[in-house]
């Protein structure tokens, strides 16, 4: 019966995550617009976008693109489902990675230079954020003794107290996954980029709608990972997430887009260093 309870939690979590993810995306655009002295779109705008994209005539270049869009969406959905079912963190991480890899493979399957360059940059971005997330997960496991999410909720002090540097590393990974400046290198929300829309260039219509929903679910998943750092009180959790997301928007609006060389030197390097410092400290206090 425990398993049935967890599965139910997972399904409800997934359904809620889809809606909340869309509204978070709308809130993101609204706050960004306000920071730029504009009004911005209505909060439900991402839903209108996805509905409109769903209704476009099919123009996919090849069948592989369609398959990859489905697989990306399914992987993102599965990882969110597993998260709400309080499963294993490592498993969640690898399912998320599979989705990202299929998105890249779809982009590589088309004979378009923008798509290829975008796909290569996306792989470099994955190369940057994945070590950071793995180190965060290892840190959590060292502290709680297990990879399972349920064990985090058994603690009575927030993880943030003992793993602040790991939270910063997670923040860097979050910026990259959200496609925010300075890391909107492979595909930018703004679309004013030298590789047009990068890895997303060749996805159109229904496939783009699926990738958009997958992106919402990824955001919810990462916010979920951030929320693990304050698992003791609901208000604290909400505040932590609000401050984190606002910080992401702030950094987006005060920086230009940088190159992947900079990202690897200045984001992966220091991020890993910070994470290692925190891990060593956790090891020392054991």
């Amino acid at each position: 019966m425990m398993i049935l309870g967890k599965l139910l939690l997972g399904v409800i979590g997934l359904a809620l995550a889809t809606f909340i993810g869309g509204f978070i995306s709308g809130l993101d655009r609204k706050i960004t617009a306000r920071m730029q002295s504009r009004f911005g779109p209505p909060l439900a705008q991402p839903f209108y976008d996805v509905l409109k994209l769903w209704g476009k005539a099919p123009m996919a270049v090849n069948a592989w693109l369609v398959l990859c869009a489905y697989l990306t969406l399914m992987a993102s959905a599965l990882s969110v489902f597993l998260f709400f079912a309080q499963s294993d963190l490592l498993l969640i991480f690898f399912v998320m990675t599979i989705g990202a890899v299929f998105q890249v493979m779809g982009a590589l399957s088309v004979n378009s230079p923008f798509s290829h360059v975008g796909a290569q940059r996306e792989l470099l971005q994955m190369f940057t954020y994945e070590p950071l997330i793995i180190l965060v997960i290892i840190g959590i496991a060292m502290h709680t003794g297990s990879f399972s999410i349920a064990s985090i909720y058994a603690l009575d002090t927030p993880l943030l107290y003992s793993m602040p540097f790991l939270y910063v590393a997670l923040g860097i990974a979050f910026t990259i996954k959200l496609r925010k400046s300075p890391f909107d290198i492979s595909a930018s929300h703004h679309g004013h980029q030298e590789i047009v829309r990068g890895v997303l260039t060749e996805y159109t219509g229904r496939q783009l709608a699926m990738l958009e929903v997958a992106h919402w679910l990824d955001v919810v998943l990462l916010l979920g990972l951030c929320s693990l750092f304050w698992s003791t009180s609901a208000i604290g959790l909400f505040l932590l997430l609000a401050v984190t997301y606002f910080a992401e928007l702030f950094v987006d609006n005060v920086s230009a887009r940088l190159t992947w060389g900079w990202m690897i030197k200045r984001a992966l390097g220091p991020g890993v260093a910070l994470a290692m410092v925190n891990l060593l400290w956790l090891y020392a206090i054991k």
Partner: peptide, 16 residues
């Protein structure tokens, strides 16, 4: 130019 290297908020502020 600012928009060309991804600094959208500067683009909006200058055009304002």
């Amino acid at each position: 130019f600012a928009d060309g290297f991804g600094f959208e908020s500067l683009f909006m502020a200058l055009w304002r």
